[in-house]
């Protein structure tokens, strides 16, 4: 053990990254030609997805194998932690773009189209009669009349679900630290099941919005920001729930000790991040 601590750890060559690059390439090229109207593109894209999933599985099992055989010292563990932290930071920046777009349109472009600030003539000559309000689908009434998504009902239930899942996750973490394995398994399972329920309900909400409320991506800036923010968030919940499922499978296999469970913590950080994004979303998209 001491040996692992005072020498630097350098991993061997690996073929996973290049597999990952090819996978991403197929995915992106496929998606591009699909968007350009080629059906074959769809299948290229899906094959890219498959390669990426294959790569993730292979890469992670390599790392898990190394971890279990005790090849990682404290320093490597720290590197992983920092890496995950800064990855989450970059995700925060990604979300802040869409929040930024929301603030900009609510506080700037919509009022400007209504004649605010130095845009008196914008309203007078181009969009006569348009009064700025929020929510809005713009002076062109893009997408036609629609209903506004209410904060209570499904979104509130979803908020409760996500907050609960945070609690169950924390309980699971404490159980892990206290070596209460069965409690750990139950609460971890509860967490990702709650996550999947969230995604399911979100899908219900979308279906409802599309069919009964005429609230679509094409519903002007309101629909755009609504679906962009909730959509990317939902995608992240899905990813996070899958991460937690994998962690759960690993606990079932007896992985993780009270001292070594970085993967668990990484997934947990990610989950809390997704949670915090939801709170911001709930306040700014649904509520205010």
């Amino acid at each position: 053990m001491t040996h692992a601590e005072d020498r630097y750890y350098v991993p061997q060559n690996s073929h996973w990254p290049i597999v990952g690059s090819v996978g991403l390439f197929l995915l992106m090229v496929g998606a591009s030609s699909w968007l350009n109207g080629s059906d074959a593109g769809f299948w290229v894209m899906m094959s890219g997805v498959a390669v990426v999933i294959f790569m993730l599985a292979g890469w992670f099992s390599t790392v898990i194998g190394e971890s279990i055989s005790g090849r990682f010292n404290q320093q490597v563990d720290m590197s992983f932690r920092m890496g995950m932290f800064w990855f989450i930071f970059s995700e925060v920046m990604f979300f802040s773009v869409f929040f930024g777009a929301l603030f900009y349109s609510r506080n700037m472009s919509i009022p400007w189209l209504g004649g605010d600030s130095n845009n008196f003539f914008t309203n007078l000559l181009l969009w006569g009669g348009y009064e700025s309000t929020w929510p809005s689908n713009g002076p062109g009434n893009a997408g036609g009349d629609y209903e506004v998504m209410q904060p209570f009902g499904l979104p509130l239930i979803n908020t409760v679900i996500l907050l609960t899942s945070s609690v169950t996750l924390t309980v699971a973490h404490h159980a892990l630290l206290a070596s209460k394995r069965s409690m750990l398994k139950v609460f971890l399972a509860a967490t990702f099941i709650l996550g999947f329920i969230f995604v399911f309900l979100q899908a219900q909400e979308y279906i409802h919005a599309y069919h009964e409320m005429n609230l679509k991506m094409t519903t002007g800036i309101y629909g755009s920001t609504f679906y962009m923010l909730t959509g990317f968030h939902g995608m992240h919940v899905t990813i996070g729930a899958f991460m937690l499922s994998v962690i759960w499978l690993r606990t079932m296999k007896g992985h993780f000790t009270p001292r070594h469970h970085f993967a668990f913590e990484a997934a947990a950080w990610y989950w809390h991040f997704v949670d915090v994004v939801w709170l911001a979303l709930y306040v700014f998209v649904y509520w205010m």
Binding site: L35, A101, Y104, S105, M108, S109, I110, W112, L113, L126, W127, S136, N137, G138, P139, G140, A142, G143, K216, M217, T218, G220, I221, Y222, G223, S224, T225, Y227, M228
Partner: peptide, 14 residues
């Protein structure tokens, strides 16, 4: 490709 209006004034974007 998906009809959003982030950069379209008619839809309230800019």
């Amino acid at each position: 490709f998906f009809g959003t209006s982030f950069f379209l004034a008619a839809g309230g974007g800019d």
